[in-house]
Design a protein around this nucleic acid. Structure first.
Lengths: 357, 357
DNA sequence: CTGTTAGCGCATTCAG
DNA sequence: CTGAATGCGCTAACAG
């Protein structure tokens, strides 16, 4: 009974507050926008009380309509199934804290959905968009930027498009990984990668692999690439064949997965084939430090996912504020996390060394 | 040069379209809202052309302001780090497809943030909220529902609150798990659970465990609960002690983790203690079928996460439409996924049997 | 079938 | 310092 007079479902509006306070809307507006010192102390206190009483919350929709900015930022994620994306999302979300609200869209790996969602975001007049998608064509994004909506790309470059982009330094990451493997005595490297539709990061990683191997070739380290379609296990037998061949020739082979999903698929297969202690038979490392890497004892390159997310909204923010104009690119360094699978200093690897000699 | 006349940054409004088309706003509006047959074919076609030319997109903010509904739905997630939450999120996202846009908030396990975010969502006038949070108090949510915003709770009940709720049938899930373990010959069960602040699901799971064990007690199966704080490893030694004691007495003990994070923590510890083939020494199962369960060969209870998400938005949708009034509760069944860790029919388990006999 | 008018909730002029 | 008037982009009544 105490505060039942305003429980009539509809939220209080600024008009309600003005009426209840015996004044008018602009005064309330001023109070809300912190134009302090422009209101008499008594009025301010009175307004404060009324707002609390009515449980008033300013309507961002109306506010945005008038002000031209609604503090909404969109994020397009190609695959929430991929822990990498979720980690980036967390970074983004945390950074948005500063004053943006995140409208997220999950395209579930469907290119059509990506485009549709982008249009939908446009419809909500988001002030900017962070894109972590794969199949986006140049023109789709261009229609956004042409409409004046800033775009930041995550881990993915789009040809001929001037946008900010932030992501892992793929080339250096691959180099670091190879350096590690070589230092551990592996002399045959098999890079396993998903078929890269238009995915620039996959392409870059493979190129970096082949380049680096090319340089190392003289020093007796050989390498090859193999394309693994996650929905089709056929290529797994080819991997097996390579492993067997290498071990027959007393070469120390290591598998290098281009990302976490690939690593998981390969690990599962190896476990099926070699049993729970598959790590002792075959060395596996990957880009992406997934949740289970520690449990599997698998060496990885950890991406600074959280930082990537933070950096993305920082870029976006600056662009929304109009501070910068030139397109920037931020490539962050990864970090090799050495675990038993590729390390000669731990028991499992000693066994492998024994095996191959 | 062809279409450069309208690239002046600002998106075209309905007024622009009307002017360009030589007609007025309501006609455009009618066209947009598909009030077909109410417009002359020629006008319709003309409007269509102009809209395409100007690349017009209706402004959802203005639309919502007028219409009273903006098709925005909020989702509050306590912990995006937990794969369970992400899976539910995916289901929700997919179901929203029907016509809602998801505004997501990640509270990062901070109770304060949960409340603040809920208020923020309120500010955007979301039409409903799906809550997968932990520390929410009754009054916080009540202020929402009192404001006329429907709320659906995921896997978490709040005392004395009338809201829809959807989640796993925890009691039955625990029963199924215990039945499985007992059928595999385990006669000592250790239920490992996080300290349950106000988390009803954890409480329910523990209660179900103790209840079921109580019934089974007569048939020589004993069980106990142990509380594990993820940030503090002390209780891990207690788990070790229990395992050792049981094995000394030739009892077959199985650990039962109440959720995935607990399972991972325990698995990591067991691996540290027993090596890569820890599964052969200690049986572990858990609720939540995480990504790595297959790789670790761990038996789990798989939650119908995706369905939970779908069901949540279905409930929300009905409530937004005002179809239903009474609070409903939807408890979905889990599914035991048997893997090597608890199965007597696979090699790893045979070894364990040998060990304990 | 089309055009006119009014108002959603708010912020921004401008007078008082 | 405060209050009346105007418009953001759109839709819902109405009238023509």
């Amino acid at each position: 009974m105490a505060r039942d007079n305003f429980s009539n479902d509809r939220r209080a509006t600024i008009t309600d507050v003005a009426r209840e306070a015996g004044t008018d809307k602009p005064s309330i507006s001023r109070y809300l926008n912190g134009e302090t010192g422009v209101l008499s102390t008594e009025l301010r206190e009175h307004i404060e009380k009324v707002i609390a009483k009515l449980d008033y919350r300013t309507n961002q929709m109306a506010h945005g309509l008038k002000r031209g900015r609604n503090r909404l930022v969109g994020m397009l994620v190609a695959d929430l199934t991929n822990p990498y994306s979720v980690e980036v999302l967390q970074g983004v979300e945390a950074a948005c804290h500063a004053g943006y609200m995140l409208l997220i869209c999950h395209a579930a790996n469907e290119v059509d959905l990506e485009r549709r969602y982008l249009q939908l975001l446009t419809t909500y007049r988001v002030e900017g968009v962070i894109v972590n998608a794969l199949g986006l064509k140049e023109d789709t994004l261009e229609s956004l930027t042409r409409g004046g909506v800033p775009v930041v790309l995550v881990n993915h470059a789009v040809e001929r498009l001037v946008t900010d982009m932030v992501g892992l330094d793929n080339t250096e990451a691959v180099r670091m990984a190879i350096r590690h493997l070589v230092s551990q005595g592996f002399d045959e490297l098999l890079f396993v990668v998903q078929p890269y539709a238009q995915v620039s990061s996959r392409r870059v990683r493979e190129a970096a692999f082949l380049d680096t191997i090319g340089v190392l070739g003289v020093s007796k380290v050989s390498g090859a690439t193999i394309v693994l379609d996650l929905d089709n296990d056929e290529t797994l037998v080819e991997i097996d064949a390579r492993i067997d061949a290498a071990q027959r020739q007393n070469r120390r082979i290591a598998l290098f997965a281009a990302n976490a999903p690939v690593a998981l698929r390969v690990a599962l297969h190896l476990k099926d084939r070699h049993g729970v202690d598959w790590q002792r038979r075959v060395a596996l490392m990957s880009i992406d430090d997934s949740e289970w890497a520690e449990l599997a004892g698998m060496t990885t390159v950890r991406q600074p996912t959280y930082t990537i997310g933070e950096c993305a909204v920082e870029f976006l923010h600056e662009r929304i504020e109009g501070t910068v104009v030139a397109a920037r690119e931020c490539l962050l360094l990864g970090e090799v996390v050495v675990r038993a699978s590729t390390s000669t200093t731990v028991p499992s690897q000693r066994i492998m060394a024994a095996h191959s000699s």
